[in-house]
Amino acid sequence: MPKLLSIATVLLATAALTASPALADPEPPAATPAKATADFREAVFTPVDGVLDFEETTDGIKVAGTFQKGFASELPSDYQLVVLDGAEVVLDLSKDFQKVAEIEAPEVAEFEFVTKTKQKVADIRNEDVVVRQLVNVAAGIKVQAEIGRAKIEKP
């Protein structure tokens, strides 16, 4: 009987140790989403002043921002927001921006949207994000003029 008792004691001790939450394997920490920031600063040829924050999500890239200066038109459709690699557009944020932008010239109120893309924040870091405005240059002739440019960097 003592041998049976010692086997039962060992089994109970093993069960207690493996069931103990303090001794169980901890859950791995949640991965921190990749982030980046683009800080626009008003200059002679770039009137836009504001900040855009980028964060990776399961659906795409979340963009949040605000602009304090630089917007002459109150029509969101007059603006493009694009990420450029040199002169090539690698990510067009225009449609999503136009849906949420609340413009009271020269400002754009705080906004947030998720652009559905397979690209990651790492793919757009060190690229330029550019704000373009549709401008009348002559009767009936409109062109997109760059009004702001900022480098996308780690926060």
Rank of each mutant, 00 (worst) to 15 (best):
L52W: 00
R125A: 04
K116A: 13
A16Q: 09
V63Y: 00
V100H: 04
P33T: 03
E56L: 00
V63N: 01
V44G: 02
D123H: 05
L23K: 07
Q98H: 03
A139H: 11
E153R: 15
K35W: 03
E146W: 06
F40R: 01
G50S: 14
V89C: 05
V130T: 12
E74Y: 00
L52V: 08
T57Y: 06
T66W: 03
Q80D: 10
A87H: 08
A31M: 08
Q119T: 10
E107G: 07
Q119R: 15
A13W: 04
A15I: 08
K142L: 13
E104K: 14
A145I: 07
S6D: 01
T57D: 12
K62D: 02
D96R: 06
A72W: 15
A31C: 06
E110P: 15
A150H: 11
A43N: 09
D96L: 04
G70M: 03
T57K: 13
L93G: 08
D53N: 11
K118C: 06
L5G: 08
A22C: 09
Q68C: 05
L4Y: 06
N136W: 07
N126H: 15
N136F: 07
T66K: 14
S73Y: 05
K95M: 15
Y79I: 02
K151E: 03
T46N: 14
F54L: 08
L81Q: 03
I103M: 10
A138M: 05
I61C: 03
R149L: 08
T66A: 12
S77E: 07
N136T: 13
F67R: 04
A19D: 04
E42I: 04
A150I: 12
K120H: 13
A30Y: 12
D96F: 02
I124V: 12
Q68K: 14
V100L: 09
A43G: 05
